[in-house]
Simulated scan of single mutants.
Amino acid sequence: MIFFLALLVLTVLAWLAGRLGVVSLRQGRACMRLALALALMFFGADHLLVPERYLPMIESWLPHPELVVGLTGLCEIAGGLGLLIPRLRRAAGAALGVYFIAVFPANVHNALQGLNVQGLPASDWYYWVRLGFQPLAVWWALFCSGLIDWPRHHRPGSATGTAAHS
């Protein structure tokens, strides 16, 4: 949930920067994309810099847990960078959607084990609530990359499409 809190804070800051004219982020989708990219790059770097924080989250049957933590960090950084490059944005969004689904079993593992991970709340409820946010992460990646428009609704015959919102 710390990841989602970071997403929300970064989205609001990006939106405010656009409103103040500091940057030209006028669309909500662009704010969400920037927030997701920054959050992914930050937490991806954290995977690489403080891997021991993430090792308890890796299931024991997986070989080379340090490598798994490092690879997930690199995936997050690559996904974040991909969202910022217009020609890679849609591919990055699709890959991130798959990534967020792929890490769901680790989040289930965390909830079932009741882990106490450095930097995360020590309450069991935290991991269970966090599971509910996983579909939001998938949607966020797909929406901000322009792969889906839901919940935006366009009138039939409207000239706007997903490309117009990228």
Rank of each mutant, 00 (worst) to 15 (best):
G44P: 11
E76Y: 07
R90S: 10
G157D: 02
L88F: 14
C75G: 06
L81C: 15
L142W: 03
H47G: 08
G132E: 09
G119E: 07
F3Q: 07
A14C: 13
A91V: 14
L120S: 01
A102C: 12
D149W: 00
P65N: 09
R19H: 05
L25V: 14
F143R: 13
H109D: 09
L25E: 05
L71V: 13
L74W: 11
F42L: 14
L8P: 01
I77D: 03
G18L: 07
W61N: 08
L48M: 11
S123M: 05
V108R: 10
V9S: 03
A94N: 08
A94D: 03
Q113D: 00
G132R: 12
R152P: 00
I101T: 13
C31H: 09
F104Y: 13
Y99P: 13
Y99G: 08
L16V: 15
D149K: 06
P151G: 02
V117Y: 00
P121E: 02
A159G: 05
L20I: 07
A92S: 14
L120E: 07
C75Q: 10
Y99T: 13
S60I: 07
R33F: 02
L55H: 02
L36D: 10
Q134W: 00
T162S: 11
T11M: 04
L5I: 14
L40V: 10
L136Y: 11
R33E: 12
F133V: 09
D46S: 13
V117R: 00
G146Q: 05
P63I: 09
F143M: 04
E59D: 06
R29N: 04
L10A: 15
A92V: 11
P86D: 06
V69K: 03
L55R: 13
W15Q: 07
S60P: 14
N107A: 10
L71W: 12
H64V: 11
A17N: 00
V138C: 04
Y99F: 15
L96Q: 13
T160F: 07
A106H: 14
L96V: 14
W15D: 08
A94G: 12
H153S: 04
A91N: 09
H165L: 13
L74Q: 04
R33Y: 05
I148N: 02
G28Q: 12
P121R: 00
A35R: 14
A6R: 10
V108L: 15
H165E: 10
V69P: 06
I148T: 11
V138E: 09
L7A: 03
A37P: 13
A141L: 01
R152G: 01
R33V: 07
C144W: 03
L34Q: 08
